[in-house]
Amino acid sequence: MMICFLVSTGANAQCSICTKTAQQLGEKPAKALNSGIVYLALTPLAILGIVGFRWYRSNKDLL
Rank of each mutant, 00 (worst) to 15 (best):
A46G: 07
A41T: 08
L45W: 15
L33K: 12
I47C: 11
V38E: 12
I17P: 03
S58C: 04
S8D: 12
T21W: 11
I50R: 02
A32D: 09
C18G: 12
L48P: 02
A11D: 03
I17R: 14
K28A: 06
W55R: 11
K20T: 08
V38S: 14
F53E: 01
L25T: 02
V38G: 06
N59P: 01
S8P: 10
A11F: 04
A22M: 13
S8G: 07
N12A: 14
A22R: 05
A30F: 00
A46W: 15
A41K: 12
V7N: 01
V7E: 00
C15P: 00
G36C: 02
D61S: 04
L63A: 09
S8E: 15
S16D: 15
Q23H: 13
L40E: 05
S35P: 01
L45G: 04
K20R: 11
N34G: 10
L62A: 06
G26T: 05
V51E: 03
C4V: 12
P29W: 00
M2F: 10
I37A: 13
G52Y: 02
V7F: 08
S8A: 09
S8H: 13
R57M: 05
K31V: 11
K31A: 10
Q24R: 07
F5C: 10
A13D: 10
P44I: 00
P29D: 01
A30R: 05
R54N: 13
L48G: 07
A41D: 13
A32G: 07
A46Q: 14
I3K: 11
L48V: 03
A22V: 08
G49K: 06
G10N: 15
L45Y: 13
S35K: 12
V51N: 00
P44R: 08
L48E: 09
L42S: 12
Q14N: 15
I17T: 12
N12I: 11
L40Q: 08
F5T: 13
L63P: 03
P44V: 00
L6K: 02
M1W: 14
E27K: 07
D61M: 05
L40P: 09
I47A: 12
N34C: 10
T19D: 14
Q24T: 10
K60F: 08
T9Y: 03
V7H: 03
S35H: 06
G36E: 01
L25N: 03
L48I: 04
W55Q: 11
D61R: 04
N12H: 13
Q24G: 09
P44D: 05
L25G: 00
L63G: 00
I47G: 10
I50D: 01
A22E: 05
A30E: 11
L63V: 06
D61E: 08
M1Y: 09
G10H: 10
